[in-house]
Amino acid sequence: MSGLTVLDQTSTGAGVLELRLHSPALGREAAATVLTPRGWRPGDHATYPVLYLFHGSSDDHLAWTKHTEIVALAAESDVLVVIPSAGRMGFYTDWKVTDREGTVPLWETFHTVELLSLLEREYGASDVRMAAGLSMGGYGALRYAIRKPGLFRGVASLSGFAHITRPGMASLLGLLAIREGMRPGLIWGPRRHCAENWAANDPYVRAAELAGTKVYLAAGDGHRTSGEEFVPGMGLMERYSRAISDDLATRLVEAGVDVTTNFSPGVHFWTNWRRKLTEFWPYALDVLEAGK
């Protein structure tokens, strides 16, 4: 498998690069936003710690820059922030079957092999890394940290669905798949027939394997804060995410994992995540600075 190819690179603002890529792992084009820090220069000099920021389901790599202050935060830091595409229901997994785009997408390989190599070769990325994401992206960050021990110094899940074998989760994921025009059960197989594979991909089940990695968990409680938008179903969704995050935090403490929690009011939508990102940012910088 040859490497990732940059088909086009466009500067869309100060410190903002939009990359159009061809990925052999995906068998098609992909995209990534690269937010460059002050004084950034390209090359293979391994200067900049990297924050990989993952988006949620039914969304794309542009959502973080559209809805939060991540561009301004990155510009005032010494950190390279990379926001790759991950499919509307890719779930940060190397698939075994074709998706609705007509290829078999190897999302984990794209993110942790192809993209990582490109960033270190051409964009000054160092081997000091942290992964963070929201909702589906929070799951992805935790999954990658478990699957690739030592790849990340820290990992963060904001409103993440990090317990896929929890009662009710298969039904929720099935509904999300149908909304995206997909047949349920494509990613890890049908739940009733592939329970072992679901467990193997469940961060809650494998929580003890995060030992040695700093973990940050944030979630709302399903109640809107002052000025927060009403989005049908997102209060219930966040209550579920909060219960999962609570359970995971308890399991991590029992396993002796270094875990920090940030639980407060908010629903499963951008006003909450915008606030959570701002609160998480100093923690991320501390983890990345300590790794330099």
Rank of each mutant, 00 (worst) to 15 (best):
R183A: 13
Y204F: 14
L186I: 11
I178E: 14
A156C: 08
A145T: 04
I146G: 01
M169Q: 13
R147H: 08
R191P: 07
A195H: 12
E196D: 15
P184D: 02
I146K: 02
P184W: 06
P203V: 00
A162N: 13
Y216A: 02
V155G: 00
A208I: 09
N197V: 15
E196T: 13
R191D: 11
L217D: 01
N201S: 04
A195V: 13
G160P: 01
R147W: 03
L158M: 05
F161T: 12
S171E: 15
P149F: 02
I146V: 10
P149S: 04
C194F: 15
A199K: 02
R153W: 07
G174R: 12
D202Q: 07
Y204T: 11
D202V: 01
M182L: 13
A170F: 09
Y216C: 03
A208L: 10
L210R: 01
R192S: 12
M169N: 11
T213Q: 05
S159T: 05
G150K: 04
N201Q: 06
A200Y: 04
A211G: 12
T165E: 02
P184V: 01
G154L: 08
S171G: 15
L217C: 06
P149M: 02
A170C: 08
V205H: 07
K214R: 14
L175E: 15
V155T: 08
A208Y: 09
R206N: 12
A156M: 02
P184K: 03
G181M: 05
R147M: 10
R147I: 02
T213N: 08
A156G: 09
L217Q: 02
A211S: 15
P203M: 02
E196H: 14
R179W: 13
L210A: 06
D202W: 04
S159P: 03
L176M: 14
R192Y: 10
G160R: 00
A170R: 09
R179C: 11
L175T: 15
R192W: 13
G160E: 00
G212E: 10
G150D: 12
P203Y: 01
M169H: 11
R153D: 03
N201A: 02
I146F: 00
L172Q: 14
Y204K: 10
A162W: 04
L210H: 06
M182P: 01
A195I: 11
R191N: 06
L176P: 12
S157Q: 08
F161V: 13
Y204N: 08
L173K: 03
E180D: 11
P190G: 05
L175Q: 15
E180M: 11
L176A: 14
F161K: 14
G154M: 08
R153S: 08
P203E: 01
A211K: 14
R192K: 15
G150V: 09
L210F: 07
W188L: 06
K148W: 09
